[in-house]
């Protein structure tokens, strides 16, 4: 996944080369399809604008059409570059106009272009190049783990209330991200949830969900213990 880009100086790219283009091709087509469906949906919107006023869908429709055009352009660009790559070695490929890696080379934008040389020189004089020049390696397992924990957390809030859900969430988040010290796993969620509850309910007056069934009673007991109620 982290193969190096072959004909660009984009150092910040982790997905590059053929893989990126394949993802870009299918992703763009999928995106165009979603936009097309939304455009169809727009035809069903009930319109009651006054005489002489453009339809209320004018603006969103124009946005959707531009998005579809860009997506198709990107898909074609990715496709053409892929074809060229198959025919000749990657070093000799000139990417098509719409392709990703032909864009800004340093990530500093147009303004940065005026000082590109100076910045690169300065970065090179130091032993390690930071920020613009570190290849990113990502650990996707942890991302999926946290994403799932978060999903369950928000699902649970309505049922068991913010107080309990938050303690459970913080503890499981810490476990997923590699915390193994029992003391931290217990104390951090308990103390900080208490502090959060106090701050939001007592100080900023936000009424947080209490929970259903018997959980609301538990939450109320917790609030009483914390002297919020």
């Amino acid at each position: 996944m982290a193969e190096k880009g072959n004909h660009s100086s984009n150092l910040n790219e982790s997905f590059s080369g053929a893989l990126l283009r394949r993802a870009s091709f299918s992703g763009s087509l999928l995106f165009a399809l979603v936009c097309l469906l939304l455009l169809f949906q727009a035809t069903k919107i009930i319109q009651n604008q006054p005489e002489g006023q453009l339809p209320v869908t004018t603006w969103p429709d124009s946005m959707l059409i531009v998005m579809i055009l860009i997506s198709l352009g990107k898909a074609v660009g990715a496709f053409v570059t892929c074809r060229r790559e198959r025919r000749c070695p990657p070093e000799e490929v000139t990417p098509s106009l719409f392709d990703e890696e032909m864009a800004e080379e340093d990530g500093l934008g147009i303004l940065g272009h005026f000082v590109e040389k100076e910045v690169k020189e300065a970065a090179a004089t130091k032993e390690e190049v930071s920020a613009t020049g570190v290849e990113v390696k990502r650990d996707y397992k942890i991302v999926v783990g946290i994403a799932l924990v978060l999903l369950f957390y928000v699902l649970l809030i309505d049922f068991i209330g913010f107080a309990l859900a938050n303690v459970a969430f913080m503890a499981s988040f810490l476990v997923v991200t590699g915390e193994r010290k029992l003391l931290r796993l217990v104390l951090i969620p308990l103390i900080s949830t208490a502090a959060f509850l106090y701050m939001f309910v007592k100080v900023i007056y936000v009424s947080l969900p209490l929970g259903m069934w018997f959980f609301d009673e538990i939450t109320v007991v917790i609030y009483k213990l914390l002297r919020i109620y």
């Binding site: 984009n10 910040n12 995106f31 939304l38 949906q41 727009a42 919107i45 009930i46 319109q47 009651n48 604008q49 006054p50 006023q53 209320v56 869908t57 603006w59 969103p60 946005m63 959707l64 531009v66 998005m67 860009i70 997506s71 352009g73 990107k74 660009g77 719409f98 990703e100 864009a103 800004e104 080379e105 990530g107």
Partner: peptide
């Protein structure tokens, strides 16, 4: 770094901005 990506991004934002009840006529969009 990529202009086409920035374009996509800005248009997604512009489109999301149209979700909801339109201010002049009150039409519910998306």
């Amino acid at each position: 770094k990529s202009i086409s990506n920035s374009f996509q991004s800005v248009f997604i934002g512009l489109f999301l901005g149209t979700v909801g009840v339109e201010s002049i006529t009150g039409a519910a969009r998306f």
